[in-house]
Amino acid sequence: MLTYLSRRLMFAAFLVFAVSSASLVLARLAPGDYVAESLGIEAHRETIEQARARYGLNQSIGAQYREWLGRVVRLDLGRSLLYDRPVGDLIPERAANTALLAVTALVLATVIGLPLGVVTGSRRGGVLPGAIRGASLVLLSMPPLLTSLFLIFIAARTGWMPIAGMRSAGATPTGITFDLLHHLIVPAGALALPLAATFERLQSQAMAQAIEEPFVLAAFARGVPRSRVVWRDALKAALRPVAAVYGLVVGTLLSGSFVVEVISAWPGLGQLMLDALRARDVYLVAGCAGAGAMFLAFGTLLSDAALALADPRVAEA
């Protein structure tokens, strides 16, 4: 068990390291650099050279990478060229915003999706399961890009909720306030809806299988009330395959939240990464990628641990 987890931990560390290194190198390889993008074409050659020297962009890729690596070991992620602030300061607040969005969406999706999946999985026919199934088929065809456009459309038409941003101007700038939750409806909803449909389908399949198991049949035969069998005995067996997916959802959440953040102007990691990529802000790109990879590594680690606990055979493989 411990060796298994430590192996997974090594993989996670490798993931973070490889992703941030690769993105630094990739961003450096891209044509044009921050200086060329920000100063424009009319700048003097000397000005450009001075700026390059100041930002360390005149070194070779190898030298710059080595220098960056040396500083990262001391937890100094470099200075963002675009915002002129240390990357180490910039990332946590943005990452927290993304995490807030992602966690809210995950909780929403679970609360909506799992019970509905139990309902559709445990019954064969009927109006309600049919309606749920249809709804989730529709929602499965609407990835976050489309759901966020749809929700913004509704918000713009009705004015029930704000369509963009994270806080109103003049509202308390920190902490979880009513204003923040109000702004959260559109992005979190957009991220949660397709995910809820996914969970519904997964749970439904797992439930349909569990309900055929001999021990469930035996419980029915003994005369245990149906709802009790479904919600207690069968559900316990049907949760495992769904739990296995949870860690993998993190990647989906990251990809999805990128889209949602850009469309609904949620100041998260995705927006920051996009800005950094566009401005060729190499250190910020590497920092964002590293932060994203950490989310990812954390998610996979969590699901690996959960799976190993649920099914000891996994750890021996």
């Binding site: 993931l15 993105s23 044509p31 989906t252 990251l254 990128f258 990529l277 990628a289 990812l296 996979t300």
Partner: peptide, 19 residues
């Protein structure tokens, strides 16, 4: 390894390497 990465970010990063 590629499977684990969020595809949108990978595509984004690769695309932005080009002009």
């Amino acid at each position: 390894f590629v499977l684990v990465l969020p595809a949108t970010y990978v595509a984004l990063a690769l695309r932005s390497v080009m002009k």
